[in-house]
Design a binder for these strands. Structure first.
Lengths: 224, 224
DNA sequence: ACACAGCCACTTGGCAACAAGTTAGGATGA
DNA sequence: TCATCCTAACTTGTTGCCAAGTGGCTGTGT
């Protein structure tokens, strides 16, 4: 059934039709169709009614050192990539226990989610969510338009030395909104990396960050 | 369409039928069916003909420090889990450039893949593949039955100090064989962690390891 | 009153026919 | 000879119907 994916063709190649696959492997057309749909949902192929199914070009993979101290921006610019960071949204979020607890907030406090998208060489690669409390940054609503770099924003507010907390990694699938932003299919796994940014001098938690990486766009280096 | 998954029920709950979902959201039964199939392939629900679809119980997640120096066995036993490691296979593999290069092997050399499965509290959690060269361990074919721990095996052959190389992380989906071994569906992502085990004294590469973790069974700690 | 058989309404699973889009080639006409 | 249109043979997409499995309800016989 899914030995189909082991056959490696070059990009743009036309795949055998549903009927041909069904005959060749002695299954019904529905079974072949299901297998092909899976490949489509994973983002390996695309289909055109009346024409057929075609292999997408395999996208480049960028090496990314996940555990490093340097910021994403610096990493990418050092490696010579054309990185654009675009602000998507900056709005209050509903109560979420984990985030509120980390930011030392009560349920009545307001927490903002600053959502930015990372675009490399024209391709959206990751969504960077920063959770900050109104308590810590009361003017965030007014200043939202100016936020280009979170670190620059924190320095402007007098925080100079930064540290990071425990870093956790998990996997999930994109919501329909995230699919649009990242230009990906529903079955492309996302790697979610979460940690906190702390003022090293005072120990205050400045933000909780939740970064969603397209798992197929990077090779992740987690060397200590 | 996929707002279905946001509704959190408790385990074992019966989901609305295909027809009911189709009517409720004003879509065809095929659309509802496709959405439910997706949930089934991701391993969230199961279906019984004539009865309906039901939520699976959410499995526990074990915290795992990916970048630590201690071995998987030690980590799990320290945390008090009942870990069983079972040998699946130990056989020659075909030429694979990356692995052969890392092991300093030519295409005519023989490389063995020692494949073991990690079972925690009765649940298969990960597949641990070790690639070793016949050049380095000529008697591996005879000794294969005795291999319980790779480190113990290396110590038996005179290697005492170990180091590890660069560690890379990636995502893929299980083959049908891996689905059987890990008791999981086809759309459950696997986290693949690869690195080399090196004799710290001589610098020789003893093995290349490729570990396949079920992404839904762990919370991955990648703190430096 | 109780046991049992049959039926019906519901579920998921599967299939076949049809619809819609594309392309190539041949018939037709100027 | 050349241009144009039509048709036929592909492709994928969609719809609807029927099969198979389950459980409850009801009628019937003892």
């Amino acid at each position: 059934m899914e030995k189909i994916e082991s056959k490696q063709f070059s990009a743009g190649t036309k795949l055998p039709s549903e009927n041909e696959l069904a005959n060749r492997y002695g299954v019904t057309r529905m079974t072949a169709r299901a297998a092909l749909s899976k490949l489509e949902e994973r983002g390996y192929i695309y289909s055109k009614q009346g024409k057929g199914r075609f292999l997408k070009e395999e996208s480049m993979q960028i090496q990314l050192h996940l555990t490093g101290k340097v910021s994403f921006t610096e990493k990418m610019e050092q490696a010579g990539y054309d990185l654009e960071t675009r602000l998507i949204s900056c709005e209050k979020v509903g109560f979420e226990e984990k985030v509120y607890k980390l930011l030392n907030c009560e349920p009545i406090d307001h927490v903002y989610k600053v959502s930015r998208i990372r675009i490399i060489d024209g391709q959206p690669m990751a969504i960077h969510n920063s959770f900050v409390s109104e308590k810590m940054f009361p003017d965030i609503e007014k200043e939202r338009a100016d936020i280009s770099s979170m670190f620059a924003y924190y320095r402007k507010h007098g925080h100079t030395e930064f540290a990071s907390s425990k870093t956790m990694l998990g996997i999930s699938f994109p919501t329909s909104k995230e699919q649009q932003l990242l230009h990906c299919q529903s079955m492309v796994p996302l790697i979610i990396v979460e940690n906190d940014c702390i003022n090293a001098a005072t120990g205050e938690v400045l933000e909780h960050t939740r970064i969603l990486y397209r798992s197929d766009k990077f090779k992740y280096d987690i060397t200590m």
